[in-house]
Write a protein that binds this DNA or RNA. Sequence first.
RNA 1: GGGGGAGUGGCGGAAUUGGUAGACGCAUCGGACUUAAAAUCCGAAGGACGCAAGUUCGUGGGGGUUCGAUUCCCCUCUCCCCUACCA
Length: 879
Amino acid sequence: MSRKRPSASPVNPVSTQEATPEQAQTSYDPSAIEGRWQSYWQDNQTFRAKNPGDLGFDPAQKKYYVLSMFPYPSGAGLHVGHPTGYIGSDIVARKKRMEGFNVMLPMGYDSFGLPAEQYAIQTGQHPEATTAANVDTYRGQMERIGLSYDWSREFWTSDPKYYRWTQWIFARLFDKGLAYQNEVPVWWCEELKTVLANEEVIQGKSERGGHDCVRRPLKQWMLKITAYADRLIDDLELVDWPESVKTMQREWIGRSYGATVRFGLEQGEGQVEVFTTRPDTLWGATFMVLAPEHPLVAGITTDGQRSDVDAYIRTAANKSDLERTDLAKEKTGVFTGAYALNPVMDPSDPRAKVQIWIADYVLASYGTGAIMAVPGHDTRDAEFAQTFGIDIVQVVEAPEDWKPANEGDCFTGDGTAINSGPIDGLSTADAKKKTIELLAASQAGEAKTNYRLRDWLFSRQRYWGEPFPVLHTDSGVKCVRDEDLPVELPAMDDFTPAEDGSAPLGRATDWVKTTDPETGTAALRDTDTMPGWAGSCWYYLRFMDPHNDEAPFSEDAEQYWGSVDLYIGGTEHAVLHLLYARFWHKVLFDAGVVSTPEPFTKLFNQGMLTAFSFKDKTGRLVPADEVEEHGDKAVHKATGEELERVIAKMSKSLKNVVNPDDVVAEYGVDAFRIYEMFMGPLGESKPWNPRDVLGSRRFLDRVWRLFVDPDGDGSLRDHVTEDGGSDEVERSFHKMLVRVNDSFDGFNFNTAIAAMMIFVNETGKQVEGFGKGQAERFLCALSPFAPHLAEELWARLGNEGGISLADWPLVDESKLVDDTIELVVQVMGKLRARVSVAADASKDDIEAAAKASIPQWLEDKTIVKTIVVPGRLVNFVVR
RNA sequence: GGGGGAGUGGCGGAAUUGGUAGACGCAUCGGACUUAAAAUCCGAAGGACGCAAGUUCGUGGGGGUUCGAUUCCCCUCUCCCCUACCA
């Protein structure tokens, strides 16, 4: 194609208030159009969302807040996968604007965090410099895609003007006692001499280098997200989110109802506390298991068992979480020599005395770090008991229809209590209740709700993050006063973690040593920083009032914008980001800072963009640059081997990553946007196929020719500048518009584009019937998808003020009705003929016409029944 | 093991939620235009049988409900994503 646009060309810097369309163009040339309209939007602040108090703010206008999850500005720039969600939200925003809403579609950057720091370390530049450069790259790429962001609201999270308020929110968490310090184990890599974040440790090895890592305790900041566990589950009822995401969040929080049970020790003082969801199986507890890290272990171990126990603990400590939780492995453990007494049995009962074991299948971090083991009704306990020859007692009778799936499987469902003294005969539900009553009466236990969710480990020994706004003084830890915020990150040349694992900020001694402005006494700053998630926890609120220096946002702005109406992003954030943000939001809600209980009213997950890749006979994936394609065959360039086409993730190593700038340079922005939406429903993952982009471009070429005669002088065709237009085009238009409108319900814009293609194909066959009003309405429907082309033709039609704020056309139901309809004639449900009848034909007429069309199928047959579906078909049931 | 999603032409995907399966697009083939090519336009095209009109099979596989099933029910196979000894 000869219409190449210089790659990465910036937005046309020419500043004109009204863009003047070029008249000389006879064929569609996106490069001549797009930059001009992008400048036009910028110069006219077309997409500026108005806040209360702004000039031109209309309180009667309804608000609509659309948000795409903001990106991490990495050095690699955007690939074609990123814009899928951005274009989707842009299309929604553009339509809503045309429907009269005050739309806010903002964009910013999540610029703190590990990858930015690592990139900076690799390139030897300061993260602030690389962040600034990357932000410019991202902004440029997004501007080139014609996304209708209100750029006046742009910010990035590593800007002190922003993180000042992140620190301010931390202070609110601290005030409420929701931020506290605690000794917790962190990953330490001896080889790299550094503390690593969870994300940097894969299967117990460092992500970089693959060195062994161990856990070691360190004082850390924690956020008490567990205090909100119930509300984080229950309030999922309030939001319109995909059921899968809600389920994931519920399971992540992992609320389970059960009981705490305390077993006394046979020898000496003390007791072992356990959590169980099945208190009814207490009579079947034939042993107990403590996690190797359990604090009681050292005290209860008998001298005879001590060396075995110590050895087991040492082995367990060196295992990674993954090794310990590997389901496939054999159960391991060691007996402590100690015994516990079952609290619901008489101490003289031989069944009351149970062995206490140590095993790594019990996790120190969940529940109490100890369990009562019921091998009769728990798969894991059963495996353990079988391995070590411990008694197995049945205490729940399975329903009669229960059959073990495998030989020897234990019954873990609900049934009837047996061999359980006072609760015998009760159903599992009643037995649970009764047991809890018994335990409570003897003070040996009580009902308990447990959560899988742990408090949020909130500090990292890293440089590139928000400093904690706290002072360590002789009288304890205190928050920096609000008026003294922000606590700015000190400039440092060397921000790599220290050899001994202490945070790099510890080396900024002038910064660390400070005075408490309230008392004038010496104080130390905290050298940890907040994790990467902190900035993204409230950014959607800052967009409401991004330049406020008095508060994170004004009360007016927050009251007006409320919560995000539509939030679009990938499923990878289904739990962490979305849970953390909801947690902060609720804290702010309780503090009276925000007025809504939930931050995101509707959530939509866009699908992942994959790519075609090629596999050889051995199953190896072949990088794209080693493959040659002929028609539908793919061949290895070097060997000539025919390759199988498969779908794979876009990856650098497969060389199948596509940069949107290249696509835009070759086909134009609008074709790129149309293709990304035409590939399939927004929510599905689907493969990028370079060849297919052409089809979207051809569609836009056909649109252009609908307006401009390619054989003419480049001016508009006469009829599109005149009133009129045929009824056929009118009907075709309204049919299309219905489908375009419907596509917004399920974000399946592919069907909207298909409908527009049909309209353009049909209209192209009778161009003279395409009048000005129709042309304008068509451009309106097209404009959210292909805004540059729509603006250009709209202006050429003589309209001023831009199509982006024009009125969205309305469907005229009366125009949808055809004069004649084609009906399908079936015999016994099989298609036999088609007949045309008048739209208002009576049922009898329809039946008669249908009968007449298929005499050969009706002779020698009796019609038993006739089914007439108006507007669709006639079906004869014959014998 | 648990949870979620999906299987429709050579490919991406449509199908008003029980009513013409394969819209729209890519790739393919034929034709027009052209000195030629590209571009563009017109047309063909799920499989099998047939010169054809047509018949028949066909939405992973098997069964069922129904006048009629890609759609609803039962069984079964395959793939993808998330999660994982949570007591």
